[in-house]
Amino acid sequence: MLKLTLVLVTKLTIQSRAFADLLKTSLDCETRFISNEMELENLDRALNPLLLVDVANLPNIDDRCWQIQFDTNLSQVHIVLLNTSKKFDKQDLLDWPNCCGIFPQSSSLVLLLQGMRKILAGEYWLPRTMMCQLLQHYRKEDIHPEQPMVSLTRRECDVLRLVTECKSNIDIANALFVSEHTVKSHLYKVFKKTEVKNRTQAANWAKDNPSAFKKLQRYDNK
C-alpha cells in the first residue's frame, strides 16, 4: 500500500474532523485539511498528497485558483472526489484532472474504506454508471474517429487562448481591448461550440485538441 498523506479539501466542521480521524485510524495514513486558497497554493508536494475533494462542501476557492494549481503544483497529484451528486457525469469529470476515485453521496463508509484501500494500492475506483458512460463514450470515438472541425472565429480563439492562461474576464477584456460583456458573449459561444459547461472544461478542450486549436487560429488569421 502506497504511503500517502490524505489531504481533505472541505470546510472545517465537527463532521469533517471526525471523518479525517476515521480515515487516519482505518487506513493508517496521515491526514490534513485544505480549507482556503492559500492552503491550496502552499500544498507541500513532499507530503506525497492524495487530495480528497468533498464536492458537496467545498471551501470558498475560486475556479481560476483550481485551474492554476492543476497546471502547476497539482499537475501530478491524484484526486478523489467525495459526495458527488446523482447528476455527476463524465463531462463533469473533465473538471478534475488526475481523478482516480469517485464516491457518490450514497456511498456507505464500508464501501468508501474499501475503495480507498484499492486507490492507495494504486488502483482506480469509479461507480459502475460512470464506467458505463466512459465505455460508451470511447466506443463512439472508435466508431467515429473523425470529429467535425469546430468552427471558432479568430476572436473566440483569442479568448480561448487567454482562458487557457488562466486569465479572468476582466484580464481578457483589457488584453483584447473589448468590454467584459463582449468577452462573456465570446465565451458563451465557445462553450456552445465545443460542448463544454465552463472555462475549466474549455481550457481542457483546447489542451486535448492542440492540433485542431492551432488550425483554427491559423485558418482564421488568413
Rank of each mutant, 00 (worst) to 15 (best):
R32Y: 14
R154K: 11
P210E: 09
R45E: 10
G101D: 14
F213P: 00
E41G: 00
F103E: 07
V77D: 03
H181L: 13
D54E: 07
V183I: 15
F213W: 08
Q136K: 08
L58H: 10
F70K: 05
I68S: 03
V53I: 15
G101M: 05
N48P: 03
L40V: 00
C132R: 11
L126N: 02
K140F: 14
C166V: 09
T200M: 05
R64G: 01
L160C: 05
A46T: 07
N57S: 09
L112H: 05
M116C: 01
R64K: 02
E30M: 02
A173N: 07
L58T: 09
L187D: 03
S85C: 12
L27N: 08
K215V: 01
S179T: 15
K215D: 01
C132Y: 12
E37V: 05
R45K: 03
W96C: 03
V178W: 11
N169F: 09
T25Q: 10
I143Y: 03
P97F: 12
L135C: 08
T164I: 04
M131S: 13
L216N: 10
E180A: 13
K140A: 11
L4I: 02
I172S: 05
K215T: 01
N36V: 07
M130V: 11
L52W: 02
P104Y: 14
L2H: 04
Q91N: 12
N73E: 08
R32L: 14
E30Q: 13
L94M: 09
S75Q: 06
N169C: 13
L160P: 01
L152R: 03
Q114A: 13
T182P: 00
Q76H: 07
L47F: 05
F70G: 00
R155Q: 14
S168V: 04
E123C: 03
F88V: 01
L113V: 08
L22T: 11
L74P: 00
L8I: 15
S179R: 04
L81K: 02
L112C: 04
Q76V: 00
P148K: 01
N57C: 04
K3F: 12
M38T: 14
Y124I: 06
Q201T: 03
S106M: 13
